[in-house]
Design a protein around this nucleic acid. Sequence first.
DNA 1: CTCAATAATTTCCTTCGTCAAGTATTGATT
DNA 2: AATCAATACTTGACGAAGGAAATTATTGAG
Lengths: 377, 377
Amino acid sequence: MFPDAEAMAPAVTAVFTAVLTEGPISRVALARRLDLSSAAVTKAARPLIEMGYLEELAATERTGPGAGRPASPLAVRADREFFIGVKITGDELIGVVCDLRAEVRAAAHRRLAVADVDYVVTQLGELVDDLLDGPGDYRARTRRLGLAVSGDVDHSTGLVRYSPFLRWRDVPLRERAEKATGLTVTVENDVKALTTAEQWFGEGVGAESFALVTVGAGIGCGLIVNGRLVSGSRGVAGEIGHVGFDVNGPACHCGSRGCVEAVAGTDAIVREAGLRFDDAVAAARAGDERVGAVFARAGEAIGVGIAAVANLVGPARIVVSGEGLAAYDLFEPHIRASFQRQAFGAAADCPLSIRPLPFEEWARGAATVSIKALVAA
Amino acid sequence: MFPDAEAMAPAVTAVFTAVLTEGPISRVALARRLDLSSAAVTKAARPLIEMGYLEELAATERTGPGAGRPASPLAVRADREFFIGVKITGDELIGVVCDLRAEVRAAAHRRLAVADVDYVVTQLGELVDDLLDGPGDYRARTRRLGLAVSGDVDHSTGLVRYSPFLRWRDVPLRERAEKATGLTVTVENDVKALTTAEQWFGEGVGAESFALVTVGAGIGCGLIVNGRLVSGSRGVAGEIGHVGFDVNGPACHCGSRGCVEAVAGTDAIVREAGLRFDDAVAAARAGDERVGAVFARAGEAIGVGIAAVANLVGPARIVVSGEGLAAYDLFEPHIRASFQRQAFGAAADCPLSIRPLPFEEWARGAATVSIKALVAA
DNA sequence: CTCAATAATTTCCTTCGTCAAGTATTGATT
DNA sequence: AATCAATACTTGACGAAGGAAATTATTGAG
């Protein structure tokens, strides 16, 4: 938690979180928003200002008849503290330094020769040093590191239970990374990290429920329901890639047939098109109807998967993103049409954002998790 | 809330809820369970005992070496207060009187000639009078009535926004029913009510996440995630019936094709078998292969739908039930096989209970909602 | 008959947030 | 200019809720 305080009062955490995610906001507005008295907000804000995490902005002009004392909105001092986020993939580490508002201030990456744990942890230590000692002098104001890893991750203990891409099993990553970097480390599943970033700093701000769908080699989904991340009682959740699409469809690596991922995953597209992914994209854009149909069918499958999310949990909005959507122009109309057809009743009104995702976003997600750890620990 | 107290302290509500759902339990065990000091539990329990909602059971013998003072477990006094639950369908009202532990004490029903609101409310008033003045003399100790209605229901205002079966739109049912009965009324969607009942008093006890799937004319699903009911931001949630199963399957009334409900709903089975539902069941049981295949395919579709729930939200357990499962012997093996095939990774370990559901259960669900309203209001 | 072990209660205290009153600052009205 | 209404924020007294530690209660084992 915050440096001076052992355990903050609930109201302090609530106030800080609200200012962080809902931008400059006056104490009175906070009180309404959080269902607290304005006195409580004043008291909660004071230590945060004293610690330098919040600041009071200049009074703004007021409108309307009668007027009154202008509000002095509270804002986060973004440069009070910095956070490192690193996304660990099978062949690369992508790292960023973010400020308190999760804006990326610096970035760096390292190719990995192998996914051996000792080697990766060593590389991670060096990457962190590069970031902290590079321009900007972040070292003095950086205490935390967030790591995003695909697979089954126990966030509370920092244990990577199983990561298929890295071929890791039961790796105590938090412990290892803390030893290697001297920072306080938080580990989270990559999709969940990205979802949290979107909930706090992206399109999910203010939504009680929210879904983020990532399209790439695999197709995943992060879910926020009733304001909280859905974790799944066995570590499994958001596996939209294995929602059924076509009982008679192609075999999926999971053992079933016609899963969304077996039709719309990068590998499936490569297989069906008979071309490398980039070539398939080019062919479809050039008007090749056969390859175009492959993307159309993939988009259709994604739409059905998204509709399953909308029908089952009814999120306030859905963001569809991921590397696989670099060619999102080929997918988008089919995703939308398929979603509209399959979504039931008012679920069809759920706004869909479909957009590609800069790869750095994954690392920013990791940084967000460490910001969250500061606030909510 | 409780009669004497305006607003109970959080701990009081927590203690009562825990004793209600986790049966007789000692104060020390409650303190561990709720992460409170034992002093706090003692203080919270006192007013509940004074009001007659809880009682102290005789001390139980202790085991193990050393021993110590035996615990005096707290238990709910089930007959302290009674609750009426009524399920409203298009052609019938089914009512029950339940005690505080949601045990059914009396039941009654009324056939409805039409679904006209005025008429239904009048009938409801008479049904409630029948229940309260029948044997048992419940009137003096009954203050609350819960109503379960299919469709889009705003639980917080008691407004029925839209119920297709009843053909109701924007009916202020709580207000109407309170006037007609003189009781405090709570209105909830029928599947959500049943899910709450299962969470508090059935197989969902103690689970942080939980799903109830109902199979019948429609196929629905209630979800508990992170201990809370999933409502859906547009009132739509748990629409497992419109998860995709077969892109090339039969047209569904929702406008799409091959939805789970379009394959496994009662109507679909009747259509495919070319027989009335009961006759189809009899034929399948008698070994008619063609009709048996219809049930097999229906079970397969239900399994895919359930797998979607398991893959997306990862509930701790799933109960499959509903009138449509009167013939659950015909469905069960296909549901299980299909679920196993489609569930991803550890999601396949999710325990499935498949069992028919006495129709009275729906009314009991309604009563549970009014019990919950007492506790959590 | 004492002791260790466990359960429940009591007393005292801290903490947190509300309430009500007061201060601050504005534009509009006399 | 002085006043007023409106709104934002602060202050200090108070009360409710839960914790810590000591106390009482009740058991089985030696």
